[in-house]
Design a protein around this nucleic acid. Structure first.
Lengths: 232, 232
DNA sequence: GTCTATACCGTGATAGAC
DNA sequence: GTCTATCACGGTATAGAC
């Protein structure tokens, strides 16, 4: 008796279409790719993507969703672990940032080219007014949990400052995921965008320090306010 | 004789096409827009864009170039001014970052909707593997000067770290320029992406502190190295 | 249920006549 | 500068093969 796979023995065609579409959408965006290019790359008939996904838009959604769920699960799990590790009753800042970044780093440095393509697609989606709502609807629930976790680690920072800081982190992450190679040329070879490990190590360190700085400047302005109160 | 207006003379055919194309490309990208949509929006014949710009690609280049030159001049000038203001023989960090960001902030909060559209277009271009080379060829000369200026302000930070930090700043800036509104929803209304002043004020403060943090951690590792040397 | 062949018909960029 | 024709290519529907 043949061992049954846990996950549905999906027909080869469907996955091949998703993979081909993922690679092409990541490279040229939704409008820059035709159904014919996708089916040709997947080695299937032009009509097959429509058979499975109903429309080009449906295929795009399918591509985006497939790995969004996996990624969300991994990041959510990593966040839980980070929150479980507390020092003096608070979760550790660096651990939270690591939980936020590491699953993406792993995706981007994965041997599976599909994951690397997916990262570039997410970057494209997140930068476009047309598609950014897909980010909101698939990722923002988890992002809110991250921001709440940051708040636990940095209770003196105001939520507004924390959200802006998250926005900056999100931008840095997005550009890193886009992997356009611009930094390679700019830095004259000092930085290699294909070396995701290095990029994410720098990002983690940079942002951990920057969030700490946020706490310090909050402390400063709180002191100022307090001393004003004392004077009055 | 009719008095000549100082402020924008009603754009003639060529400019109207650039304006229309700019708005549409910013919204939907190169492939998401048709020449018919552009000419309809500009109120000109379908053939006119081709007459002026040779091709759709030529039009795209024209849109990108028109304001790139103006922006480069403004930022270059701002950087010169920042470099002229030195404290103890070094340019001031915050001044350099301000010079880098302010012209873009002004563009994004301009009354001229064309500038606002242009910012979104640049964000799209910078996030796409297909177009990012346009960033390199039009902006990287100036960016190199900025990184050199940062190095003057922070002589102890290694160039590689400085380039990575620039990369992160560039990502934050890009996402801010993209102005997708995602942060508005996420923050539950605490942050308003259409309030460019606020966004850039936070960005300037955040990155100034983060770059200072970079210098401190360099100092730390230098000390460590030095103490290792001493031990040996 | 999975997949192919083909047809449909609107729209694309652009060239050439005016 | 403008109008119009061209013709390849776009997404997708359908018929039917395995």
């Amino acid at each position: 008796m043949t061992a049954k796979r846990a996950s549905p023995p999906a027909p080869a065609g469907r996955e091949k279409i998703l993979d081909a579409a993922e690679a092409l959408f990541a490279e040229r965006g939704f409008f820059g790719v035709t159904m014919r290019q996708i089916s040709e790359r997947a080695g299937v008939d032009v009509a097959l993507p429509n058979y499975y996904f109903g429309s080009k838009q449906g295929l795009f959604d399918g591509v985006f969703l497939r790995r969004a769920e996996i990624l969300n699960a991994r990041r959510s799990e990593a966040l839980e672990r980070a929150l479980a590790t507390t020092a003096d009753g608070r979760p550790e800042l660096a651990g939270i940032i690591d939980a936020f970044l590491r699953p993406i780093r792993d995706a981007q440095s994965s041997a599976d080219v599909g994951w690397r393509n997916y990262c570039r697609l997410v970057a494209l989606v997140n930068s476009s007014p047309v598609w950014a709502r897909m980010m909101t609807s698939h990722f923002d629930a988890l992002v809110s949990k991250f921001v709440s976790a940051l708040r636990l680690a940095l209770p003196d920072v105001e939520m507004k400052d924390l959200y802006w800081a998250y926005h900056f982190l999100s931008g840095s992450l997005t550009l890193t995921m886009a992997d356009t190679g611009r930094i390679d040329a700019l830095s004259g070879g000092l930085c290699h965008s294909e070396n995701a490990r290095d990029a994410y190590a720098h990002m983690k360190e940079f942002y951990t320090a920057a969030f700490v700085g946020l706490a310090k400047s909050s402390a400063r302005s709180a002191t100022k306010k307090a001393s004003r109160r004392t004077k009055a």
